[in-house]
Amino acid sequence: MIEKLQHFDRRWIFLTLFIVLCLAVIHPFQLPIAVEPFVQKAYNAIEALKPGDQILMAFDYGPSTAPEVHPAALAMLRHALSRGAKVDMFTLWNEGYPYIQDAIDKVCIPMGKKKNVDYVNLGFKWGGQSGAGVIEGMGSNLKAVFPVTDDGTPYDSVPALQGVRNFHDFKLLLSVSAGTPGIDEYVRYANARYQIPIVSVVTRVSAPKEFPYVTGTQIVGLCAGLVGGAEYEELMHHPGAGTAGLFALSVANMAVIAFIIFGNAIYFLGKGTKKP
């Protein structure tokens, strides 16, 4: 029996996980959400914005990681706009571009915010693998990097960008990223040189890499993955995709833990039954 279990067909594991996840998605339960200190710091940084403050928001992710980071991006955008801040959105990833449009459709338009007045879509700018040329350029002259907005409106004709020259005119940089170029590049080129405070959203797996920056001074708040998004939505009292996905994520985590325990139980039982 133990020997059979040791050579357990992994397709049963796939099937179990699939069924468990399907059930979790079909019948979700509301779980209590405890807010992590880093998420609270991110919330506080955005809460401190005053009407008219300018913030930059980078959507540096693609479809593979969007389910993890997009909910937090939407929640933060909603929060920033509700504080009356002007949000200038851009991306260094070509895959990130549709998520700016999605954020506009789901947050800016329903909130009655006006394009180029309350928010600006600067679009996609390719800056190479490191994005250094674009980030450094934005630091000294935003207009040189984005001479027109996404819809072709000249920089000088955009009401929201009047008087905005470089990073020094922004209160905050909201970086939602899932790779390179992303948060590491903003810390390196934007914060180190121009001291622009950064609030970051990253995938859960890459969050530990950013902990030294959050406990330091480079990043003022961090939302890690879908859980971070759910926690931010909890703080906003506005449940969204983060809260909705939390139950499925929790169930998947529990399933993996169960598989670890099951695998070890078989391993130890197998050791005990081994013939000398």
Binding site: R10, I13, F14, P63, S64, A255, V256, G263
Partner: peptide, 18 residues
């Protein structure tokens, strides 16, 4: 793209067991 990335969860579960 999402599906390819989601497959990772299944491989993690299998690796966790083995």
């Amino acid at each position: 793209s999402s599906s390819i990335f989601a497959l990772v969860a299944f491989f993690i579960a299998s690796a966790a067991f083995r």
